[in-house]
Simulated assay, not measured.
Amino acid sequence: MRPSPTQTLRLSLILLAMPLALAACNRDGDEPAPAEVAAETDAPAQETPAASPSNLSFADKTEHATVSLTLPEGIKAEPDLHARTYAEEVRNLRQFEEGALAARTEAEGDEGMPPFEKTVTVTVAGQTDRLFSLRREAFDYSGGAHPNTLTTGIVWDRSLKRLIGAPELFRKGADLTALDQALCTAVNAARRQRVPDARTITLAGRDGWACPRAAETPFVLAPGDQAGKAGGLIFLIGPYQVGPGVEGGYEIAIPQTAFKSMIATAYAGEFAGQPRRTGDVTPR
């Protein structure tokens, strides 16, 4: 008996639907269920090296450059600062390596140049209940007659979790002339200790050299004689800044009494007492 037109149409629709049903079944088996997708999405991201407490050092050596970084144990107490500092320093060291390779590529060969070298050493300087400071020393040899060493400072606000500098530490619009002069006097005294016949320099400049301005000079907190307080600031003055390169850099500690009235209200309570040392405190 031949099927009626209606039965033929019904059978055709059934046969057409079967591949679609089978495809749907296969998709169900291949794709994760919504719960599985959620589980994958919610899985914690892998910890970045910069955030790991164990990352206090980094070193690498290529044919053209040697680089290294050393951070202090004390930075572990400030995880955000630790992560930021490690990441930035490693990125800069990688760029230094790339620069060493580029220098040789541009010169079309080593031409007898020794490998470049950069070593960054960070140590804990003064700190208070709210502020935490680090001394950063960078040794850099990028060819030429001799290497250079530059010392800078890092000051971290623990409560705000951010870096601060002179614009934040000092009152807006404060007249820093007295602090500039105190720093200038201390620099001249330090220079005479190293070079007895060194000529006096001034804020206005003389013989090509001038005293540094406090607001334009990196600094760290000076440890003081009162717990949880800074006794002053240590200003970090680079080589060639106040005299010939043979003199090297200077680290000058100025007591907080010379600038306490200039400190912003938010940070005034972080300073008290006297620094453990004043004047030239450059490490020997």
Rank of each mutant, 00 (worst) to 15 (best):
5 P>H: 08
6 T>D: 15
7 Q>P: 09
10 R>L: 03
14 I>Y: 06
18 M>N: 03
19 P>N: 05
22 L>D: 11
25 C>Q: 13
34 P>V: 14
34 P>F: 12
38 A>N: 06
41 T>K: 13
43 A>T: 09
44 P>E: 08
44 P>Q: 15
47 E>K: 00
47 E>N: 15
50 A>V: 01
52 S>R: 14
54 S>I: 13
55 N>P: 04
57 S>F: 12
60 D>M: 10
63 E>V: 04
66 T>W: 12
71 L>T: 00
73 E>H: 13
73 E>T: 02
76 K>R: 15
76 K>I: 12
77 A>T: 02
78 E>I: 03
78 E>V: 10
80 D>S: 01
81 L>Y: 04
81 L>C: 05
83 A>Q: 13
87 A>Q: 15
88 E>D: 14
90 V>I: 11
90 V>K: 05
90 V>Q: 13
91 R>L: 11
103 A>E: 00
103 A>F: 13
106 E>R: 03
111 E>S: 04
113 M>D: 08
130 R>E: 07
134 L>K: 12
138 A>V: 00
143 G>H: 07
144 G>M: 08
149 T>W: 10
152 T>W: 08
168 E>Y: 02
169 L>K: 12
172 K>T: 12
173 G>H: 15
178 A>Y: 15
184 C>N: 05
186 A>Q: 03
189 A>P: 04
193 Q>P: 00
194 R>P: 13
196 P>A: 01
204 A>E: 14
207 D>G: 02
212 P>S: 06
214 A>Y: 03
218 P>K: 03
218 P>C: 04
220 V>E: 03
220 V>D: 01
225 D>G: 04
225 D>Y: 08
227 A>D: 02
229 K>D: 02
231 G>P: 09
231 G>A: 09
239 P>A: 01
240 Y>P: 02
248 G>D: 05
256 Q>R: 02
259 F>K: 04
264 A>S: 10
264 A>M: 03
266 A>L: 07
269 G>S: 14
273 G>L: 13
276 R>I: 01
276 R>E: 13
277 R>E: 11
279 G>Q: 00
280 D>C: 10
